[in-house]
């Protein structure tokens, strides 16, 4: 039982990190007032770029993650151009980005399809990793797991402890007020979307390089959507996003553990649990938080300075 628990907890971060990176990216997006439903597509592009560059350029996870971030950035530029500059409908464009990402990766990913890779390795921190239970859970993760902690802290620090973060939140809450205060609304939104794209791309890259260690079509399998739901669960706060990601990472990590333990649970029903759990969380937030929503005031609304409506 202890071993089961240790294995489960040790695997949780690998599943939690991609959710957390994507959720953080989406929080930055949405805090600036842009709802990005295209996370899934950005993650797919990140995953493919990560695997492809990992294979082609010396099997380096650093190269892979950089490429993943860059791929996410490129898709985010496209998304930002359409919704921030051209002010197109954010919902339609976001959904389209998902299928754009799926189509694009499906088309150019053929070469790297189903090639197993070594990917991220667990770090060996000497005697720390040897500690029973805790060593395995806390001190034998890969580098990205440890790197994600400062990233989460950084996002929080940026949003709540810097002037640029205040400006960004102002743009998402009330762009009219931000504009009158001399804040460049479009520029903030564009950069927020770009930053969100980088994080979503990294989430996809990590998923491919650490969790799956392979590229297959549509491998993100709904995690982008779970991240979008986690933003609501986290009430747009990075701290709560960590909790949410650990919770859902835990659920995802449990599934292969249960298979490995050989318990007679119907496989496909087990696979449904992350989605049903996400839905349950959304309904719970809806039932509990109806009175005061924490959503940014101008979420999803394009801003036009001379709009008199």
């Amino acid at each position: 039982m202890i071993e089961f628990l240790a294995n489960w907890l040790a695997f949780t971060p690998v599943f939690a990190v991609p959710l957390l990176l994507a959720t953080l990216g989406l929080i930055v997006n949405e805090r600036a007032g842009v709802i990005n439903l295209g996370a899934e597509g950005m993650m797919l592009c990140g995953a493919l770029a990560g695997v492809a560059c990992y294979i082609e350029f010396g099997e380096s996870t650093a190269v892979g993650m950089t490429a993943a971030a860059f791929a996410g950035l490129l898709i985010a530029f496209l998304f930002a151009f359409v919704v921030v500059v051209l002010r197109a409908d954010q919902v339609v464009t976001g959904i389209t980005i998902v299928f754009f990402g799926a189509g694009l990766t499906g088309l150019i990913g053929l070469r790297w399809n189903d090639t197993a890779i070594a990917g991220f390795r667990k770090l060996d921190l000497g005697f720390l990793s040897e500690i029973p239970f805790f060593g395995k859970v806390v001190f034998a993760q890969d580098a990205m797991v440890y790197l994600t902690i400062p990233i989460a802290f950084g996002v929080w620090y940026f949003l709540f402890r810097t002037r640029a973060g205040l400006n960004l939140r102002a743009v998402g809450e009330n762009p009219q007020a931000a504009d009158a205060a001399g804040i460049a609304v479009d520029a903030y939104r564009f950069c927020a979307v770009a930053a969100g794209g980088v994080l979503c791309g990294m989430a996809g890259g990590y998923l491919a390089l650490a969790a799956a260690k392979i590229w297959v079509n549509e491998m993100t399998h709904g995690r982008g959507w779970i991240a979008i739901a986690l933003v609501i669960f986290a009430r747009w706060m990075p701290g709560r996003a960590v909790l949410g990601a650990l919770l859902f990472g835990g659920i995802e990590a449990l599934i292969p553990r249960i298979f490995a333990a050989g318990w007679p649970v119907p496989q496909y029903f087990l696979q449904m649990t992350p989605f049903l759990a996400t839905l349950a969380v959304l309904v719970w937030v809806g039932v509990a938080g109806k009175r005061r929503s924490a959503a940014p005031g101008a979420l999803g609304l394009p801003y036009v300075r001379e709009d008199r409506w």
Binding site: R163, L166, N167, R169, A170, E173, N174, A177, A178, A180, A181, G182, I183, G297
Partner: peptide, 13 residues
């Protein structure tokens, strides 16, 4: 910006 404090609103500008 309604969820911000007075000081934050003033600092914004």
């Amino acid at each position: 910006v309604r969820p911000f404090t007075v000081a934050e609103n003033v600092a914004m500008a």
